[in-house]
Every structure is written in structure tokens, then in C-alpha cells.
Design a binder for these strands. Structure first.
Length: 881
RNA sequence: GGGCGAUUAGCGCAGUUGGUAGCGCAUCACAUCGACAUUGUGGGGGUCACGUGUUCGAGUCACGUAUCGCCCACCA
């Protein structure tokens, strides 16, 4: 990279810089982790994005935070691995390929399992790297040489191993249970994949005639289409209304089948009519009731949500879609006068998380993981601190779920996924669970596949070579250090990684779970394609630059992990900051010509040099502490403030003066360079490209080839300068107050004036030391000194700084009435503050209880105000006379 | 029904052991190419949702209320 400083553009060119710099890192293989290293390990596994995924703002945030942690720890001396990869995303990917073949007029059944899988692999191989390539645009420093896929050989072997072991331990079982069934996906889904929505529906009251006698029982239902699957009517045993009916038989309207009236505590007397129809094959609660009363379930609906062709269902209804059937049945009931009432009824309806189809509870044969025994350790690990959630409140959320854990339905009636390693004898039907088919001639494999989250749950160790415990990566980088993700997948993913990790490796898969908020649009709504409110990170990067995106995102991260509202314009914040860094760097680099490669000479430091070094030092201290506490957003703020407000606005401005002084020039150059260098290093994890680019241009004596592998700044005792820090505050206040006076009276910058400083005794040497600064920065002609107690001269403005006074003579230049008003306003503020402080000091309890320092502070402030008050009063008197 | 979060300047948000409130944007005034107008300088703007309590002192702690949002459970 040979670039002439003078030729650098005045506006930072993010597009070209970012492309070049990323290439530079890749070519030098700087992202590669070394499993043989002696350094302490730090590792993160990426939450694997779906292969079908397209980069969105959620990724941008998640990946940025992981990259910040990765880059920081790499610089801070850890052997750092950020392992990337993708998820095969069973149903999602299958849906995409099904849509594709639908264009050719085919369904997956037309192709057959084998051909369909071939097509899906083909699609996957074509798209597999897309999203990770997109993440390169985010500057992600993950190690692509270790990229994994949940469906690759290693992960698949791990899945089989885990399945067989769990089965052998009795923690996986197959059985008939009511599951959430999606009629569109034609598969079972787990509880966590079901989302509930409140819908406006109806409650139909249907009359069931008693058999062989006059009378009927009225049942309320929201799902009249299921009446053909009824096996009983249930009432509460203590319900006097119905006590005489228990044990009698009723007739299902329309179909004529006879069913008993039974008593069960499950029924709520006060709800509906107090009588419930029991449909065990199509309702979870009814299933339980049916089991208790030994009633055989009757299936009346197909897997695609149409009505079954079976004797229990009247011929008019057979084959109809469930909602059409509902309409038809209601009509028929009305005709038969069996429908007594229709009421509006609001209720919650389960929806398939993936396709939003209303789920159908369906009794079917599925595979489950027995969770309770696994949950015990997963609860303990969080309770005893082996795993920490940040922010802490998510711990409660996690524990609440774990403590009420239900068995996990892991079988899916799909083809794209890990086929369950169970084999059935073709003749006897005997089942064998094993990693491989024991006898392919005589055994056929279970057709169901596993829930995608089953393989994701193994991710932290399946990617590290497990079950091979001698794998170098497994030994060096497992358990991982930090997991970074959004709260929306705590149950889906985090909880399962914890249970699986503990069960199979005996170790928690990570020590900290860092949970960040979700990205929302400017109105606070979730971003979604259907709402059309998405913001494409790639477009933001094209428009503002990757570092701008990253900095803005980071700055919006709060400690509490609040959701983040974004809009296009918010990224101007980061872009402007990047541009500031660029131009300040350009200026500094231009002024480094002739500098040597030596360290700063401490004996030649000016008060300003010491001040900026001290500030830099405390920023370094804070930054490192903040990372430990996951206060990452705070780090963006302190760097922004330090770099822009301290370094650019003050230090660089003052350095311009020092550079003009031959005796100070060289050392000033060194300080400028040092502070720029260290600032860039601290900024690097957040804004990797621009910092790398500038750092490469700094003349320095080092064989470190990149900022990303340079040492991260740490707090240094020798850079602490408390006195200078305080004295500089006086300088700033003085300059600001002179500027304030100038602007208040509309005195143009071109007009210089004299200033008389009436310094308090202890402050006088400070003023004298920084006289030149005041002159230059406040555009002052001459500075003279006077007695603090001397009467204020007429026709002048006074600024009070600390315990000293700054007098500016304004003869013939200003409106005196305006000045009087200005001073009175100031006085009022001061008097209010003084009164409040004095009131506090009169309070005996305050004086007794408050810490000494605070009391001293308060007294000092009162005294200070008194001096200022007197000065201003005198001044007002002068002006009025 | 249970739980969690939010409520601070016009807008978006910070505020870690309690010591009288800050940042960005917007706004007003001034400055027009001396690193940067993606800029500089200065200013204005808040009874911290409400109530009660603890305390010498509460944005900060406790209890309660209101509004908004989210999660979990779910009665047909």
C-alpha cells in the first residue's frame, strides 16, 4: 500500500477502503485461529444463519457484536476463534426447493425422496456461501477455514451419535401423543414453534339428544367440525345441573353415533354450558380426558386438514377442507335445529411459526426427547453460575421455561434433514436404533427427519470435532467463551445447546450468554418483508459504509439490551464519525512529516500533552472494563466523545500551536501520533476498516503488520496526570467564557480584544502557563493581570471562571442594557443554587450524615458562588451607574 | 391468569453501589473554504409517567397506580 498522504481524499471513501482492507486481512490469513497456540483461548460460534437466509439487520447487529468481541480479544492477547457456518434449516429449505420444482409442475412426491434430496443438495451447494459472503461485507473476522454446516458429515455423525446415546439412555422415545400439526407443512412441529394469536371466532351451542328419552344436553364448542370425532360429553362431577345425566347416552347430531356422558374434573362448570364434547384425536385436553376414561380416539381429519373419508363422517363432508366443513356443518345443524345459539367469542389460535397456518392438534405417532432429566443439570449450571446471562434478567426467563419443561417433539414429516436413525424389520416390524442400518436388505429406515434445532443444539461441540475428544479444536476451543444472540431464540436454541452440551461433554458449552435486543423500525415495529419496513444492511453499507453501520449499531446497544429502533438516517451518525476520524487522521499524518520513530519524551510534555494522555489512559481503562461487563454500546460513546471532543476539538487545535514551536514540535508529533495510534486501536473492534487503513499509513517502528493483530491499549500508571487534568479544565472554561462573551455581544471573530485576568492566588500560575493557549483559541490580543479585589472597570464584561475573573473591556462596542440583563440572569441562577446548597448545610442531619468530601465540596461551591455573586453584583452596579 | 420490559428535552435514547440530570438528531445565532460543512463556535430547551414510603438527600431503593410493548400458560 503506497499512498501519498497529500493525495488522500477529503471525504472518506468507505467503499474502496473496506473492500481493499478486507482483502488484505484475508490474504494474510489473519482470521485463522491456531489450535496449537499456547495463548489462552477465546471462542465464539456463530448462530448459524439458515442457508436460505438473506442478510438482515438482525444479523448486522449480532455479527457486529460478535466481531467486536472477537477482534478485541484477539488484540488483547487471546488465541481467538470465531467459527462460522450455516444451518440446513429443514422446513425452510424444503419449502424453497418445493416452490422451485412447483414451477416445473412437480411436487416432491413426484420426484421421490432420493431425487428431491439431490435437488435440495444442489440448491444448498449453490447458496450455502451466500449469506456468509454477505457477512464479509460486515467486516466479520470469522475463520472461514473452519466453516461448518449443520448437515455436513461431521455434524450429521454427531447427530446420530447423540440420538443413539439418548435412546439407549431411555431419553428418546416414540409414542402416540397429541402434537401441533401444521396441515400446510404436513408435519408435526414443536411447542416452541407454535405461536398463539388472538382471533375473533364463534362459540356454537349444539344440542345432543338423549338416547331413548326426551331431552338433550347442550354443548358449547369453537370447533363444530370436530363433532364426528366426539367420543363422549363431559360434565363436572359436582355440577348439579347435570348430575342426573351422567352415565346416560347421547346421539351425535348429523352422524347419529352414540356416545356416553361422563364426569371429569377438567370441565369448568362456569364456562360455556358446562358441558364439553370430548374429541381425543384432535384436542390435547380431550386426549387426556379420553385416556382417563379409556375412550378410543376417532380420527376424522386428514394430515392436510381435510375431512377424512371414514364411516364416522357423513358423506357430504368427506374430503372437504376443515373450514368449509365447519360452514357446511353449521348449516346442517341449523337445518336439523340442533344449533341453539351462536355467540361471538375471542380465543387464542395456534399458528405455525414458519407459515402462519392455523395448527391442528393431532394425535399421532412421533419421536420425543424426555426433557426433565436433562433439564436438571441445565438448571443447575445457570443457578450455580457456570453459565451467566447478560443481562441477568434473561436467566429468570430461561429458568422459568426449564423448570416447566415439556417433552420435545423432535420428529418432522419432512425429507430435508437428519433422517432418524431407527430401522424397522420389513417383515416383523422390529425396531433397531443404531448409527447405521444393521441389515439394509431386511431393514428400512424411519422416514421421519429430526427437528432442525436438534442439530443446532449440538453446534458448539459438533463443529469442534466432537465426538472425537482428541480433536485439536475441541481440546483448545471447547467450551466456547461467549454466545451472542437475540432473546427470541433462547428456548429454541440456547436452552437446547445448554442441555445437550452438558449431557454430552459434561461442560457448559459457553460461560456467558450475551443477549441483545431486536432490531425494529423507527416506529418500534418488528421488521418484516410483509410489512415492507425492512432496511437492507447491504444498502446501508453501500450508502454509509460498513464501519458507519457498525458504529451506529453499537452505539445504540444499551446495557439492558433494549430493542433498537433504526431508520436510514440514523446511520449518518456513524458515517460522520468515520469522516471525522478520516480527516483528523489526515491532518495528523500530514503533520508527522519529519517525525522520528522514537517514543514520547516525558520530560518535554506540556500541560496539554499530559492532559490528553491522561484522558486517553482513562478511556483505555474504561474500555477494557466495559468489555468485561458487556457494556459495548458505552464503549462507542466514550470513544466518540474522546476522539471528537477531546482529541480533535481541543488537543489537535492546541497541537497546531505547539507544532509551530520548534522546541516542542518533535515531541508534539510523537504525542499526536501516539494518541491517534491508541485511539485507532480502541476503535478497531468497532470500526475495523478505517482504523486499519489509517494505521497502515502511520509512520512507526514496528513489525506488526496490521492493527487487528496489534496490542490492545491498557491502562498505564505512568500516564496518570491528575493535576494537569484539573488545570486544563480551567483553561477550557476560560476560553469558553471568553467565546461566550464574544458571541453574546456579537463581536466578530475578526475583532481581537484585550483581556484582563484577575486570578485567584492559586490559579494565577496556571493562567500564566496557558496564556498562549487562551490568546490563540479565544482570539485575544493581549492578556494582562490584575488584583482580584480591585473594582471592576467601567464599560466592561466580566466572566467568572472558578474563583477568578476575566475582564473584557467593551468600550463603545456593546449595548450595556443587554449586558446588565445578561448578568442579572446569571446572578439569579447562581443565587438559586447557593440558596439550595446553603439550605442543605443548615440541615444538621445532612452535616452529620453526609460524607466529608461532599460537605467540603458543598462549602467550596458556596464560597465560589459567593465570590461570583459579589463580582457580578459589583459589575451590575457599575453598569447601571 | 403469571412474568418481564418501557415511561427522562420536540424526536431517538444514556444515566453501574442514592449526592439536584447527560448524548445524538432537530432547533436558534454566528462563522464560508487554514484536517473535516459528513464542519466549527456559542445558546435555548426537562417539577425524570403518577402516588405513597425509606433517607439528611430519590431519575436511582420499596410498595402501589396508569399507559404502551413483549414473553409464558390457556377454558371447550
Amino acid at each position: 500500500m503506497t499512498i501519498k498522504i497529500e493525495d488522500l481524499p477529503t471525504v472518506y471513501d468507505a467503499q474502496n477502503t473496506e473492500r481493499e482492507i478486507y482483502k488484505f486481512w484475508e490474504e494474510n490469513e489473519l482470521f485463522k485461529a491456531d489450535a496449537k497456540s499456547q495463548k489462552e483461548p477465546y471462542s465464539i460460534v456463530i448462530p448459524p444463519p439458515n442457508v436460505t437466509g438473506v442478510l438482515h439487520m438482525g444479523h448486522a447487529l449480532d455479527e457486529t457484536l460478535q466481531d467486536i468481541l472477537t477482534r478485541y480479544h484477539r488484540m488483547a492477547g487471546y488465541e481467538t476463534l470465531w467459527l462460522p457456518g450455516t444451518d440446513h434449516a429443514g422446513l425452510a429449505t424444503q419449502n424453497v426447493v418445493e416452490k422451485q420444482i412447483a414451477k416445473e409442475g412437480l411436487t416432491r412426491h413426484d420426484l421421490g425422496r432420493e431425487k428431491f434430496l439431490e435437488r435440495t443438495w444442489q440448491w444448498t451447494n449453490e447458496h450455502r456461501s451466500t449469506i456468509l459472503d454477505q457477512m464479509k461485507r460486515l467486516g466479520a473476522s470469522f475463520d472461514r477455514s473452519r466453516e461448518r454446516f449443520t448437515f455436513d458429515k461431521g455434524c450429521s455423525d454427531a447427530v446420530k451419535e447423540v440420538f443413539v446415546r439418548l435412546y439407549e439412555k431411555g431419553l428418546i422415545y416414540k409414542g402416540a401423543y397429541i402434537v401441533n400439526w401444521c396441515p400446510r407443512c404436513m408435519s408435526a412441529i414443536s411447542d416452541v414453534e407454535t405461536e398463539y394469536e388472538t382471533e375473533q371466532g364463534h362459540m356454537w351451542e349444539i344440542s345432543y339428544h338423549l338416547k331413548g328419552e326426551v331431552g338433550a344436553i347442550i354443548v358449547a364448542t369453537t370447533r363444530p367440525e370436530t363433532i364426528f370425532g366426539d367420543v363422549a360429553i363431559a360434565v363436572n362431577p359436582s355440577d348439579k345441573k347435570y348430575s342426573e345425566l351422567i352415565g346416560k347416552t347421547v346421539v351425535i347430531p348429523l352422524s347419529g353415533r352414540e356416545i356416553p356422558i361422563i364426569a371429569d374434573e377438567y370441565v369448568d362448570k362456569s364456562f360455556g354450558t358446562g358441558a364439553v364434547k370430548i374429541t381425543p384425536a384432535h384436542d390435547p385436553n380431550d386426549y387426556e380426558v379420553g385416556k382417563r376414561h379409556n375412550l378410543q380416539p376417532i380420527w376424522i381429519m386428514n394430515e392436510d386438514g381435510t375431512m377424512k373419508d371414514c364411516p364416522e363422517v357423513p358423506w357430504e363432508i368427506r374430503g372437504m377442507d376443515r373450514y368449509e366443513a365447519r360452514k357446511k356443518i353449521v348449516e346442517m345443524l341449523q337445518e336439523k335445529q340442533a344449533l341453539l345459539r351462536i355467540r361471538d367469542h375471542e380465543h387464542n389460535v395456534g399458528k405455525c411459526q414458519r407459515c402462519n397456518t392455523t395448527i391442528e392438534p393431532l394425535l399421532s405417532e412421533q419421536w420425543f426427547v424426555k426433557m426433565e432429566p436433562l433439564a436438571k443439570e441445565a438448571i443447575a449450571a445457570v443457578k450455580d453460575g457456570r453459565i451467566k446471562f447478560v443481562p441477568e434478567r434473561w436467566e429468570k426467563n430461561y429458568l422459568g421455561w426449564m423448570e416447566n419443561i415439556r417433552d420435545w417433539c423432535i420428529s418432522r414429516q419432512i425429507w430435508w434433514g437428519h433422517q432418524i436413525p431407527a430401522y424397522y424389520h420389513k417383515v416383523t416390524g422390529e425396531m433397531v436404533v443404531a448409527k447405521e442400518n444393521p441389515d439394509p436388505e431386511n431393514y428400512v429406515q424411519e422416514t421421519d427427519c429430526l427437528d432442525t434445532w436438534f442439530s443446532s443444539g449440538l453446534w458448539p461441540f459438533s463443529t469442534m470435532g466432537w465426538p472425537n475428544l482428541d480433536s485439536e479444536d475441541f481440546k483448545k476451543f471447547y467450551p466456547t467463551t461467549t454466545l451472542v444472540t437475540g432473546f427470541d431464540i433462547i428456548f429454541f436454541w440456547v436452552a437446547r445447546m445448554i442441555t445437550m452440551g452438558l449431557e454430552f461433554t459434561g461442560k457448559a458449552p459457553f460461560s456467558t450468554v450475551y443477549i441483545h435486543g431486536l432490531i425494529r423500525d423507527e416506529k418500534g415495529q418488528k421488521m418484516s418483508k410483509s410489512k415492507g419496513n425492512t432496511i437492507d444492511p447491504v444498502q446501508i453499507i453501500d450508502k454509509y459504509g460498513c464501519d458507519a453501520l457498525r458504529f451506529t449499531m453499537t452505539s445504540l446497544c444499551t446495557y439492558g439490551g433494549q430493542d433498537i429502533k433504526i431508520s436510514d438516517e440514523r446511520f449518518e451518525y456513524g458515517r460522520n464519525f468515520a469522516n471525522k476520524i478520516w480527516n483528523a487522521s489526515r491532518f495528523v499524518l500530514m503533520n508527522l512529516q519529519g517525525v522520528d520513530d522514537k517514543e514520547i519524551d516525558f520530560s518535554k510534555l506540556t500541560i496539554v500533552d499530559k492532559w490528553i494522555l491522561d484522558k486517553l489512559n482513562s478511556v483505555a481503562k474504561e474500555f477494557n472494563e466495559n468489555i468485561k461487563n458487556f457494556r459495548i454500546g458505552e464503549n462507542a460513546h466514550i470513544l466518540y466523545d474522546f476522539f471528537w471532543n477531546s482529541y480533535c476539538d481541543w488537543y489537535v487545535e492546541i497541537a497546531k500551536i505547539q507544532l509551530a514551536d520548534e522546541s516542542l514540535k518533535l515531541n508534539t508529533q510523537r504525542v499526536l501520533r501516539y494518541v491517534l495510534d491508541m485511539s485507532l486501536r480502541m476503535l478497531h473492534p468497532i470500526m475495523p476498516h478505517i482504523t486499519e487503513q489509517v494505521w497502515q499509513l502511520i509512520p512507526k517502528n514496528t513489525d506488526v503488520r496490521a492493527i487487528m493483530v496489534s496490542e490492545f491499549p491498557q491502562f498505564k500508571e505512568e500516564l496518570v496526570f491528575p493535576t494537569e487534568r484539573e488545570e486544563m479544565e480551567l483553561v477550557f472554561e476560560t476560553i469558553k467564557s471568553v467565546r461566550n462573551v464574544r458571541q453574546s455581544f456579537n463581536i466578530p471573530m475578526s475583532v481581537k480584544f484585550d483581556v484582563e485576568i484577575r486570578a485567584e492566588k492559586s490559579e494565577k500560575p496556571v493562567f500564566e502557563a496557558i496564556e498562549a493557549l487562551i490568546q490563540r483559541l479565544a482570539k485575544v490580543e493581549n492578556i494582562t493581570y490584575g488584583e482580584l479585589e480591585a473594582p471592576s472597570p467601567k464599560k466592561s464584561a466580566t466572566a467568572v471562571v472558578s474563583a477568578s475573573k476575566i475582564i473584557i473591556r467593551l468600550e463603545n462596542l456593546i449595548d450595556f442594557n443587554a449586558e446588565i440583563a445578561r448578568q442579572k440572569k446569571k446572578l439569579e441562577k447562581l443565587v438559586n443554587e447557593k440558596n439550595s446548597l446553603a439550605g442543605r448545610m443548615k440541615n444538621e442531619k445532612f452535616v452529620q450524615n453526609a460524607p466529608k468530601e461532599l460537605i467540603e465540596q458543598t462549602n467550596a461551591r458556596i464560597e465560589e458562588i459567593s465570590i461570583q455573586e459579589k463580582t457580578i453584583n459589583d459589575l451590575i452596579a457599575e453598569l447601571e451607574s
